[in-house]
Design a protein around this nucleic acid. Sequence first.
DNA 1: ATTAGGG
DNA 2: CCCTAAT
Length: 679
Amino acid sequence: MVLKKRVDYRFKGFPVPVIPKAPRSARRRVPFNKADDGRACAIELLASLAGQLLQESESSASSNASEGNHLPEFSHGVIEQDRQDVVKPLKTEEVHQGSCAESTFKIEVASRNSSRKSLSHAKTDCSRERVSVNTNSDCWKKVEADVKVEISDCDNKFGQCPDRLVETPENFRESSDGNIKKGFKWEQEAGSSCFQESTLADKCSLKEHLELYVSPTLIDSKSNIKSPFHRKSFPSASFSRHGNGNKLGFRDDDENFLRCKKVCTKSKAFRSPRRIAHRRIRNLMSSKYWKTAPKLKDCELSTSDLGVTNYHKRKTCYGVERSQHNTIVKRRKFFDRVSGVTSDGGFSSESVSNSPQKGTDGDKPSSPAKLHVSKAKDSHVKFSIKSIRIPELYIEVPETATVGSLKRTIMEAVMAILGGGAHVGVLLQGKKVRDDNRTLVQTGLSCNANLDTLSFMLEPTSLQAPPTVGVGDPSSQCETSQATRPTETPVLYSGITDTLPDSPLLTYPGNLIESNHESTSSPADTTVDKITSDSRALVAVPASTEALAVVPLSQKTKRSEFVQRRTRRPFSVAEVEALVHAVEELGTGRWRDVKLRAFENADHRTYVDLKDKWKTLVHTATISPQQRRGEPVPQELLDRVLAAHAFWSQHQTKQHGKHQAGPGTLKISEASAERPCVS
DNA sequence: ATTAGGG
DNA sequence: CCCTAAT
C-alpha cells in the first residue's frame, strides 16, 4: 500500500516523498487534553488581558512576530487552576428570585496566594480564585465583583527586581488630557525562574503583575526588566523542500511557541488544541471593543507635556509565550493575584502606603497595602502601585449558568470596560482628584505628605470622559460621582446574550452620567458602542433566553464580540508554489494531506487556510492580472493552478485521487495540455 | 478532526 | 480569514 501510494504521488516525474500514513486515528499525534481546549474562563481572560493591552499596541508593528507571540496561550496550568476554583457561597441572603430569571450573584473573585509548594506544583497550586456566588433578590445590588490585581513587587528573575517605582516630580502637572492616565501599563513580569523554589513562590506570585505607571516619569532602573525572551524574527517565507514534496518550513513565532508545547503534549500538527485554545482566548480577548477602542496602547505614549521620557515599551508581557513553561506558570500566577475586591467605580489601587524605605531595594512590604508610594529625594514621589481595582460590576446571569460561564462573563465585562480604554483616576482620601492640572504638591501628594490615602483606579474611558475630567477640585467632583458612588451604575453584565453580537449590551444610566464630560476625549473617544460614561456600564441581560441554555454564554454567544482575527499572512510565492505542487499531486479535497505534505512545518497554515488559498488562487488565476492584488503570483503558477483545478474537478478528488495510478501525474499533464484557455 | 462552502 | 454545517 504504502509503496503504491508513493508511486502515485509522483507527479511529473518528481518522486514524491512518502508520507507515512496511518489511519487518521493513528496519525493523530496525541490526544490532547480537553481541558485544555479553549476553555477560556473569565479568569484566564483576565490574565491575558494585561498582555492584550500591550499586545494591542505592539501587534501592529511586526506582522510576523505579532500573531502569536504575545497572545497568551493557556495551557493546562490554567485549566487546572480553573478546576481548582472553589466556589463558595459567601452568603446566601435570601434567595430565590422566584422564577427563573435572573438572580443576582455576588461575586467575589478573590485570589490569594496559596502556598506554593514545589515547582511542579506551582502551576496548579499557585492560588485559587474564589468565586462566591450569592443570590440576592435585589437585582441591583447584585454583583459586586472586584477583581483585584495585585501589583506587587517581586524579585526579578534573578531575584533582583524590586518594586517598580515610578517617580514623578511632585510638581509636575498632570496634563489636562490626562497624560498620567495614559501611563498605565499592564505588565507581566518576565521573571521566570521564580518557580524554582517554593520559598520564592510567594515572591513569584508577585512577580507578574499589572503595572501601573502612574506617571511617565522616571522609572526606577530596576524596574526595567528585560524580557528574557526574544522574539526572533523569522523569515516569513523560507522553506525548504524535502525531496520532491515541497515542505515548507516556515513557522513563525507563534507557531514556534505552539510547537514547543507540542513537544510536551503532542497535539495535532495543524492546529493543535492548544492553539485552538489559544486562539479562542485570543479571540475573546479582542473584541470589537478592543478594536475600536483606544486600547491601552497609550502606555506607549510619552508624556511630552512633561518633557519626560516615557517608558520603554517592554516586550516582556505576554509576548513571550516562547517561554513555554514559564509562560504558563506565569499566567497562572497572574491569576493568582486576582483577589476579591470591592468596587467602587473603577479599578483602583487598593491602598497606598508610604514607604519611604521601600524605594529602591527590593523591600517588600509585607503590609497589605497594595500601593506603595515612596518618597524619593528630589521632590520626586515614587509610586509603586501594587494593585488596582476594577470598577464595580453588576453581573446578571441565570442561575443555571455554570460557574465557568460566570467567570467568563465577568471577564467579558471587564474586557468590555477596558476595551473602551481606561484611564487612571486618582483618589486621595477617597475623593477623586479631578483636576489634572494640579500639581502633585497641590493635590497633596508631596514627598512628605501622607499618602496613605492615595489610591488610583482604572476607569473605563470609553464613552465620555468619566469622572476624571473634571474641573475643580477633588471635593467638587466628589459630589457627583462620589456621592452617588455606591451605586454609580456599576457594570451590569449579562453573560447571556445570544444575539446581538454587535449590539452593545451596555447601556448606561443616563442619570449617572456626569454633567461635564468634557472627557479628555483623549484616547479612545467614542469608541465603539458606548460602553459607559461613568465608570460603570450597565449591561442589560436578556434573561429569558438563558433559562434554557445553561451555558450559552461564552462560546458561541459572545465570542463573536471578542474575536480577533489572526494576523494576516499573505502567502508567499514560495508557499503558493508548494501548495500548487501539492495539490497537483493530491488533488483538491485532501487538504489535510496537502497540509501534511507541504506545510507541515508551517503551523500557521492550517488545512483550512490551504483550502482557502487554493480557492483564492483559482479565483486569482481567473481574473485579469490587473485585478490581482498583493504579491504577484507568477503566471506559471497560476496556470498550474487552473490546470490542476480543472483536472481535479473532473476527477473526483476524493474518490480515486491518489489511487488512480496514472491519473495523478499524467492526467494533470494532460489537463494542462487541454486546459481551457489559460493561455 | 476534516471537508466544503459561504461570507 | 472566519464561521459553520456536515461528515
